[in-house]
Design a protein around this nucleic acid. Sequence first.
DNA 1: CTCCATGCAAAGTGTTTGCATGCTC
DNA 2: GAGCATGCAAACACTTTGCATGGAG
Lengths: 141, 141
Amino acid sequence: MTSETYKKPDYEKALRKAGIRITRPRRVILSILGETDDHPDALEIFRRAVAIDSSISLSTVYRTMKLLEGLGAIHRHAFEGGPSRFEQAVGEHHDHLIDMESGDVIEFHSEKIEQLQNEIARELGYEIVHHRLELYGRRIK
Amino acid sequence: MTSETYKKPDYEKALRKAGIRITRPRRVILSILGETDDHPDALEIFRRAVAIDSSISLSTVYRTMKLLEGLGAIHRHAFEGGPSRFEQAVGEHHDHLIDMESGDVIEFHSEKIEQLQNEIARELGYEIVHHRLELYGRRIK
DNA sequence: CTCCATGCAAAGTGTTTGCATGCTC
DNA sequence: GAGCATGCAAACACTTTGCATGGAG
């Protein structure tokens, strides 16, 4: 991604509307989330944030992630054996394929699988609130 | 499930064959795992173990779980927002539906979903090593 | 009688929180 | 100015580990 004027929801405006103060740390963190396509963890976000403003603390990163998660602006993923990783909540729902070697995350979506999940839950007498589907795999040579 | 003489793989024999010592704590923990149908966490296993032999320590529970996991005798599940929960590795592979209110776990299996997962991974150039599919839901009244 | 397994306490990891201060609205 | 947000350090929940002792083979 070279262009920066791409999909960039205006979170600042949205947050302000939600009565949330736009502070320097929040602005920095939002800009980081807006520009990445990967799924960084809190420490990685912290590192990138510190590079922009060295006074930002890790607690603020965690607090901001929690805040944004509550607003539905980001999603938190707890992939196996690692810290939570975050992504901006833009676009459609999707699931994840995790490259076990590199940790890279590939997004995918299957309407068929979603339907099957709903059927299964219904048969068991449940309605799904949310689900988690993660494929852990290796690149085929 | 009322009968206790049901599916009960002889883990002691298997462990002995693997060159692993059968100690009192291990015997106790194995008996607990063999008799439960739920998905207890380490602390719950510890509680049940202490009721049988009060000298067992939580570290031993954790160590034993790790050992058994390595041997493929149990599976570890990290459901959302809680400690790892364990289950005996008997029977076929299955996925889990978690009752968000009670924490109860219902097992299910869908061959169709498994196939779709494989197709998706293949298309992305990956082979699946394992996957995680969890449905979080509420009972329909 | 040799090692592996244990209990205990301490350390480790990722995350949250209390508190005094600082900055947005 | 009023009150939310911050940095810092301490607390937290879960899990692992070092070490000296104990017990299975």
